[in-house]
């Protein structure tokens, strides 16, 4: 392939290269600006240093938000992964007439704009006393992470022959044993991908946090957002870099077991 490409192909390649620069550029710029030695957002930076990472390490608010977002991401991902995996199992294994309706409902959080979800949640949470609470944030993030788990799990469950599970049942395993001991190990890559998506969705969400977070539950993206509105020091670049590193590490770990990019197709 590609031995004798038309010249149009190389023009297309050049254009695509520039478009990639456009897509990746803003992130690269942040990663570079984090190492600035200046006090402003001057770019390219006049000098290099690690002072903004040092400042970050001493910034109690950012550290608290970082820890909160990590914990919240893990809990929300756990809730979404368990309920999403079970739901995908119910959907794929036992087909029923209302199948399409249930599937639409489970994938709906993906298509309903985040702002609307956040507004509606605030109205309800305010009445229930959940506004600003960690519980409220967990519920909200589990909701928006759920479709990612349902989708990746449905895809990998569809690739597992139900006969394998039946064989286990015939050999005397209970429904639960068959699921945990036979099916689950076969779909672990789908499960890992779903859990990673769920974590990242929670870890990077700012919309829900803008509406339903309280003073005690300011997540990292929300902290960066509010900080950015008032101040534009390279500290934001440093904390953003830290966030990107967490995401890249999580994705790299998962990429070993499963191809996220193919699972993440819209």
């Amino acid at each position: 392939m590609g031995a004798r490409r038309h010249w149009i192909w190389w023009c297309l390649g050049l254009a695509v290269g520039l478009i990639y620069l456009f897509m990746i550029g803003p992130i690269m710029v942040v990663l570079i600006a984090a190492f600035s030695s200046g006090d402003t957002m001057e770019f390219p930076p006049a000098g290099w240093s690690l002072r903004w990472f040092a400042a970050l390490a001493g910034h109690a608010d950012f550290l608290a938000s970082f820890r909160l977002s990590l914990g919240l991401g893990l809990i929300a991902a756990a809730v979404a992964t368990v309920s999403g995996a079970l739901a995908a199992y119910g959907l794929v294994r036992y087909r029923r007439p209302c199948q399409a309706g249930i599937e639409t409902l489970l994938l709906a959080p993906l298509y309903v704009p985040r702002v609307l979800i956040a507004m509606a949640l605030l109205l309800v949470f305010a009445k229930l006393g959940l506004a600003g609470s960690l519980t409220g944030m967990i519920i909200g993030h589990a909701l928006i992470a759920l479709p990612f788990v349902v989708r990746t799990m449905s895809a990998s469950l569809a690739g597992v022959d139900p006969a394998v599970e039946e064989a286990a049942r015939c050999l005397g395993a209970t429904w639960r044993q068959a699921f945990v001991l036979v099916t689950l190990p076969l779909v672990r890559s789908g499960l890992a991908a779903g859990a990673v998506f769920a974590f990242i969705v929670s870890f990077t969400d700012v919309y829900l946090a803008l509406f339903i977070a309280g003073p005690e539950t300011i997540t990292l993206p929300l902290r960066i957002f509010t900080f950015m509105e008032w101040e534009q020091s390279p500290m934001v670049a440093a904390v953003s870099t830290a966030q990107v590193i967490v995401i890249l590490v999580v994705m790299a770990l998962a990429e070993k077991t499963v191809s996220l990019s193919s699972a993440g197709r819209i």
Binding site: M23, I24, G25, P26, I27, M28, V29, V30, A33, M41, F43, I200, F203, T204, D205, V206, P221, I224, F225, M228, Q232, V236, A237, S240, Q243, V244, I247, M251, G264
Partner: peptide, 16 residues
């Protein structure tokens, strides 16, 4: 980039 989230990318545009 989709996984990095919009806040970081918005900051990138502010720097640019």
């Amino acid at each position: 980039p989709m996984m990095v989230g919009i806040v970081v990318r918005a900051y990138g545009w502010m720097v640019i």
